[in-house]
C-alpha cells in the first residue's frame, strides 16, 4: 500500500504539478479577454488613476489652466499676428466715424481676438452701408471695404425728411430740404417702394423742373406731380411717364400750366380733364354768357 498521507517531515521532491490556484491563474491569464484587459486596460487605468489623483487638487488644476493660457497668449501676442490699424475704403468721413464707433476695436489687437464675422454683421447693419468686406491684410492692417448706399431722393414722412436710395431704404436723416436741393422730393404712404418710377417721372419732368416741387404717392398706387402755385398733375397707375409727357407737350404748345389751371387730371390718359381755379371758372362762365347771351 502506498503511503496515502505523506508526513510533513520527509523531504519531498519538488512536485512538478502546478497547484490548483496556479493552474487556474495561468488559464485565466491565457483567456484572450483578460490578456487584452491586462495589456491595454491596466496601463490605461493606472495612467487615469495617476492623472485623477494629480488633478484632484484645485491649485494644480489652476496652475495647468494658467500654463495653457500663458502659452496661448505668447502665441497670440506675437507681433506677426497683431493688427495695428484699420483702413476703411469707400466710405464718406461721417460713415467712417460711424463704422469705427460700431466696431469698437482698440488697436493694437491680436488677429485671433478679432471676430470678423460679428464685426462684418455689425457694420452691415448700418443703414448707409450697402456691402462690406473685411480682411486682415499682411502687415497688420484690418481692411474694411465699404460700398455706400447712394441717396437718390428725399422722402418726406411724418417724422421729417430722410435721404433714400434707389431701393427705397433710408440712408440718413436730412435736417432741411434746402440742404440737398439737387435731390427730388417724394412723399406719401408707400413712396419709398416706388423710388425707381419716381426717378423716371422726375427725368421725364425735366422741362418743368423749375416748377416741380415733388411727387406724392396716392393710395400706394399712383403718383401726383405737385408743382408751384398749387398746381398738380394726377398721373395714372400705369403709363405715368407717357401721361406726363403728354402734359408737357400740351404745356409746350398751349402753355397749359401757365394758365389758371389747378389740376390736370390724367388718370384716364385718353380723357385728360382740367380743373380751373375758382376765379377762372367764374370768368369762363361770364365769357360763355356774354357769347351766348342771357337766357
Amino acid at each position: 500500500m502506498r503511503q496515502m498521507i505523506r508526513s510533513t517531515t520527509t523531504a519531498l521532491r519538488r512536485d512538478p504539478a502546478p497547484s490548483r490556484l496556479n493552474y487556474r491563474l495561468q488559464r485565466l491569464m491565457l483567456t484572450p479577454m483578460i490578456r487584452r484587459l491586462l495589456r491595454v486596460g491596466l496601463p490605461l487605468g493606472c495612467v487615469a488613476l495617476v492623472l485623477a489623483i494629480y488633478l484632484s487638487d484645485q491649485g494644480r488644476r489652476d496652475g495647468i489652466a494658467m500654463l495653457i493660457e500663458d502659452v496661448k497668449s505668447t502665441v497670440r501676442d506675437r507681433p506677426e499676428f497683431m493688427v495695428k490699424l484699420m483702413a476703411i475704403d469707400g466710405a464718406s468721413a461721417g460713415l467712417a466715424d460711424d463704422i469705427r464707433e460700431v466696431m469698437a476695436v482698440d488697436f493694437p489687437v491680436s488677429s485671433f481676438d478679432l471676430d470678423l464675422t460679428r464685426m462684418r454683421l455689425d457694420v452691415a447693419a448700418l443703414p448707409a452701408v450697402a456691402r462690406v468686406d473685411m480682411r486682415v491684410r499682411p502687415g497688420g492692417v484690418l481692411e474694411v471695404d465699404i460700398s455706400e448706399r447712394m441717396p437718390v431722393a428725399i422722402l418726406r414722412s411724418r417724422n421729417g425728411l430722410d435721404l433714400v436710395d434707389r431701393a427705397g431704404i433710408r440712408v440718413a436723416p436730412l435736417a432741411a430740404r434746402s440742404a440737398r436741393p439737387d435731390l427730388p422730393l417724394i412723399a406719401g404712404t408707400g413712396a419709398e417702394g416706388a423710388v425707381d418710377e419716381a426717378l423716371e417721372l422726375f427725368a421725364a419732368a425735366a422741362p418743368l423742373s423749375a416748377d416741380v416741387r415733388g411727387l406724392v404717392r396716392v393710395g400706394e398706387r399712383r403718383w401726383t406731380l405737385v408743382m408751384d402755385d398749387n398746381q398738380s398733375v394726377l398721373l395714372p397707375e400705369s403709363g405715368a411717364v407717357q401721361a406726363l409727357e403728354q402734359v408737357i407737350a400740351l404745356n409746350q404748345v398751349q402753355q397749359l400750366l401757365g394758365r389758371d389751371v389747378q389740376i390736370v387730371d390724367m388718370r384716364n390718359p385718353r380723357r385728360p380733364t382740367l380743373r380751373l381755379s375758382e376765379g377762372a371758372a367764374e370768368k369762363m362762365r361770364e365769357i360763355k354768357v356774354m357769347e351766348l347771351g342771357d337766357d
Binding site: 512538478p16 504539478a17 502546478p18 490548483r20 496556479n22 493552474y23 495561468q26 488559464r27 491565457l30 483567456t31 484572450p32
Partner: peptide, 16 residues
Amino acid sequence: AIRTAVQAAQKMANVR
C-alpha cells in the same frame, strides 16, 4: 499529472 501536462501544453500553445 493531467494539470501538469495541460498547463505545459497551454503554455507552449499560448492559448487557453
